[in-house]
Computed example of a mutant assay.
Amino acid sequence: MIDFQQGLIKLSPIAPDRVVPMVAPMLVNDEQIVAAFKTVRDSVVFTNKRIIAINVQGMTGKKTDYTSLPYSKVQAFSIETAGVFDRDCEIELYFSAIGQVKFEIRGSFDIVQFNRILSHYVL
């Protein structure tokens, strides 16, 4: 499992079709990918039902950990838009079982529109 208590997870937006081969076998009926992000090796996928954190492990990267974070366990969340000097935006989610999970998104990403999507699934 990704250590969410370690701090900020820094992500870059990617096209959702890039993660389909990794997560398609895990998706349930009517589950669709809403957004996808990548670190150097790991990925985070937001679907209409949950967040899937993909942690690639080991030297060869053949071992992979998939952590599902259902929206039903989110107690609160916040977003922080990018500024003039700080071009990154942030998403903070508070889960009943694991506490705070914080994602920093680098690059061009419409966090306000994503907040609307996230609100639809969490509220």
Rank of each mutant, 00 (worst) to 15 (best):
G7V: 10
E92A: 12
K102R: 15
L11Q: 01
A53H: 04
D30Y: 06
L118E: 01
A36I: 03
D86V: 12
I33G: 00
S72E: 15
C89P: 00
A36C: 04
F4L: 03
Y94L: 08
E31C: 02
K102S: 08
A76N: 14
L123K: 12
M26I: 07
K38A: 15
D42Y: 08
V34F: 06
S12H: 06
V19R: 02
P25V: 07
I14E: 06
M26K: 13
A15D: 14
C89I: 10
G83H: 08
T81K: 15
T64L: 07
V23D: 11
I111F: 07
I91T: 05
T67V: 07
A97Q: 15
D3H: 02
K63P: 00
D17P: 06
I54E: 00
F46L: 09
A76C: 09
C89Q: 10
R87W: 10
T67Q: 11
A97S: 15
D110N: 15
D42S: 13
K102V: 09
S68Y: 12
V19W: 08
A97L: 14
F109S: 07
S78T: 12
F114R: 07
L118V: 01
D88N: 15
F103D: 01
Y121N: 04
Q32I: 09
N48S: 03
F85V: 14
G107R: 11
Q57L: 13
I51L: 14
Y94W: 10
R41I: 08
